[in-house]
């Protein structure tokens, strides 16, 4: 018996090491690329953030947390941080609300619903860059919709320099971001709504539940996975916003619509000697994404494994 057990454990150990070798070979290409071009650069960003440095590596000097101190003392940087958080919160809520409302309205077996779904996806299909440019025109103070809307409704405030007014620019970009991606959230919520068994609504109607309580007691709990995914997804994407800001306002007027991504892009590539400072900005963005994800995960009472599973 003892010998058999020993042989068994020996073969299973040698089998484990054989499996390990095979597993390693299967994973080697992915490991190499992800390690060299993803994991190491992430670590290097932390390292660079502690240095005064320019991207062509002429000078590199250790400065500790100086870059972070400078970030929090620079009004433009604080503005970018504030804009990023404001933008992400508003846009994440708005994307999900718009997607959910449209999904509810179009979750019907009419041919017209199908056509509308395709049209609402058009922004998602033409890319953020193109969406940004077409909306730059729509929001143009003399050629865009503003003058027409004022003529039609008599409401003067609709005729604005939407992208040129520092108080409005960030909000105008928000509208475009939501417009562009609504189709994607509509699909997430349509898929969620289709998992709700129709019998639940029938039972609720028999019990005399009204439309609203059907929605809040059946629909919302049943599509909670879709809501979790939608909000997490929107938050992570929105904190990284770059394309629509770059194409519509370049962070302006002044720095009115600057976000962390546009700020670190201009600091790293339009100025010399600020690569370390830009890396510190990237690290701040990283912690912001992690913090928001953690808060949302707790909020939705879900472990990360559940979100990904």
């Amino acid at each position: 018996m003892a010998t058999t057990a020993a042989t068994l454990s020996r073969t299973s150990r040698s089998q484990t090491s054989r499996l390990l070798r095979v597993a390693f070979l299967f994973m080697l290409p992915a490991l190499l690329f992800v390690l060299i071009f993803k994991i190491i650069p992430i670590a290097v960003s932390f390292y660079y953030s502690l240095y005064s440095w320019d991207i062509l590596d002429v000078t590199r000097r250790f400065v500790g947390l100086e870059n972070f101190r400078r970030f929090f003392e620079t009004p433009q940087a604080i503005g970018a941080l504030r804009n990023t958080v404001l933008y992400a919160v508003v846009v994440s809520v708005a994307k999900n609300l718009a997607g959910l409302l449209i999904a509810l309205a179009l979750n019907k077996p009419f041919r017209s619903s199908r056509i509308m779904r395709v049209f609402i996806l058009s922004g998602t299909m033409v890319s953020l860059v193109i969406s940004g440019y077409t909306w730059s025109y729509i929001l143009h103070p003399s050629l865009g919709l503003g003058p027409l809307l004022e003529r039609l409704t008599g409401l003067g405030f609709l005729n604005q320099d939407w992208l040129g007014n520092p108080n409005l620019a960030l909000y105008s970009v928000m509208i475009v971001s939501v417009w562009q991606i609504t189709g994607k959230y509509m699909i997430i919520y349509l898929a969620g709504l289709q998992t709700v068994p129709v019998e639940l609504y029938e039972a609720a109607r028999i019990d005399g539940a009204g439309r609203f309580s059907q929605f809040s007691r059946i629909t919302v709990p049943m599509i909670m996975p879709a809501i979790t995914i939608g909000v997490m997804n929107a938050m992570i994407f929105s904190l990284k916003v770059f394309d629509e800001i770059f194409t519509m306002t370049k962070g302006g007027p002044g720095f009115a619509s600057e976000t962390l991504s546009t700020y670190l892009h201009s600091q790293a590539f339009f100025f010399t000697g600020r690569a370390g400072y830009a890396s510190a900005t990237a690290v701040i963005l990283f912690f912001l994404v992690m913090a928001f994800s953690a808060v949302l995960l707790v909020f939705f009472r879900k472990k990360e494994a559940d979100v990904y599973g």
């Binding site: 992800v34 071009f37 650069p41 960003s45 660079y48 991207i55 690569a275 990237a282 994404v289």
Partner: peptide, 23 residues
């Protein structure tokens, strides 16, 4: 390891990648 780097923003690798590809 693979799953936990999914959420890391691409901006975190931007500057080191450009630097690396230059060199």
């Amino acid at each position: 390891v693979f799953v936990s780097i999914i959420m890391v923003p691409g901006q975190m690798t931007l500057i080191p990648i450009v630097r690396m590809f230059y060199s």
